[in-house]
Design a protein around this nucleic acid. Sequence first.
DNA 1: CTGGGTGCAAAGTATTTGCATGAAC
DNA 2: GTTCATGCAAATACTTTGCACCCAG
Lengths: 134, 134
Amino acid sequence: MQKYMTLLKEHQIKITPQRLAIIELMDRYGHISVRDIYEKIKATFPSLSLATVYKNINAMMDSDFIKELKIVGQDNKYELAKERHSHLICQKCGMIEDVHIDTQGLQKSIPVESGFRVAETSVQFFGTCKQCAS
Amino acid sequence: MQKYMTLLKEHQIKITPQRLAIIELMDRYGHISVRDIYEKIKATFPSLSLATVYKNINAMMDSDFIKELKIVGQDNKYELAKERHSHLICQKCGMIEDVHIDTQGLQKSIPVESGFRVAETSVQFFGTCKQCAS
DNA sequence: CTGGGTGCAAAGTATTTGCATGAAC
DNA sequence: GTTCATGCAAATACTTTGCACCCAG
């Protein structure tokens, strides 16, 4: 808990129980949807409003404190901002897992004449996870 | 036009003027949103309904005839299914461009112990396009 | 104390559905 | 002629906004 409070302070975001609960969930699950955040917190904190979840997610995205993850076939997910990484996404169960792979090499194959300057690379691997394969 | 009719037939989708118009736009623009499809077609074909656009997009996705593209900061886009490719996305003007790069090598860096079997890899490069850079 | 956050209700936007009519094959 | 698509309206889902009240700093 203390660690989440410190995180919020560093990003100059006011500390509230709602925010701590949201961050705690993101940290625990890695990637989570608005709906799931709302329902999980609501269970132990019934006064929580869906609007508050949205407002906080937007505020934390503005501060680059969390990141939005759009995945074909799934609701948007949110994760704590951390070192660059890619995602493994199971097409059967929906599981999302982080992988750290080097994407620097990829950029070299972009045609120079495109004149495109890359700031960030996003890689998603779709497939079957260990559990679903067996 | 004939080429689009052939395409639809191959995928066993009934040919209608609405569908031809949608496909023609996707082919022309490469990547286009529901809203843009609706507004562009509506201009010359006023009876078109938004529900029809949605129904057709869903039908064509079910037939793997078109693909959905989710991009952080933009509305969903749709493109005709074609050979595997990646996308350059300009964070200033929103331009989306196809690039053909080899993503096979990437998979090698996924830890074997993850037990994940990759079926498809999606790569998005975010950055600045030639026009916006100058 | 003061500013910003919360919750509620309402508005706004996006997407889906049911059904009667009409077009494709 | 039969099947399936279209258009409209209504329903549902998703997200944002305004405002009165309350809590963190």
